[in-house]
């Protein structure tokens, strides 16, 4: 079996248009994401992207590298560090931490363009044990 990639990376613009479209697609219209006036009075003081929208970038990275194995055996564990305030170029990254017994484990993170860490955690995927 081939060696899992050392590093995976993608950058995606999350602007308010994408947040609004995601709210419709995911049927999550929480006003903290879409209502400017409501969000201004929230602890964040502004609209923020859905956490699941940001997390989806990590899933996208893992899908790109592992395909259906990710859909069948993936595991994600993340802590939210800061909200993503649109518009922001979010950089998602996965760095191989270990690979043994057919399981590849990555340290994953999403960062804003100013270096603010939005989420951090681990992702692992079972790649089977066949040679």
């Amino acid at each position: 079996m081939s060696t899992p990639p050392e590093e995976l990376r993608l950058v995606r613009l999350i602007d308010q248009g994408r947040v609004d479209a995601y709210a419709d697609a995911a049927r999550d219209h929480n006003p903290i994401h879409v209502d400017e006036v409501f969000a201004a009075a929230s602890p964040f003081g502004t609209r923020i992207a859905h956490g699941m929208l940001v997390l989806a970038l990590v899933s996208e990275l893992m899908s790109a590298a592992f395909g259906e194995a990710w859909a069948r055996s993936g595991a994600l564990k993340v802590r939210w560090r800061a909200p993503a305030v649109p518009p922001v170029n979010v950089s998602a990254r996965a760095l191989l931490r270990s690979s043994s017994d057919g399981v590849a484990t990555y340290d994953v993170s999403c960062e804003a363009e100013d270096g603010t860490v939005l989420l951090a955690g681990t992702a692992s995927v079972s790649r089977g044990t066949s040679a």
């Binding site: 259906e68 859909a71 069948r72 564990k77 939210w80």
Partner: peptide, 16 residues
């Protein structure tokens, strides 16, 4: 007075 998302764990088991 405030509620925030702290963390998330997801497990994937089969394709849809």
């Amino acid at each position: 007075q405030a509620t925030f998302h702290a963390g998330e764990r997801a497990e994937l088991h089969d394709v849809v």
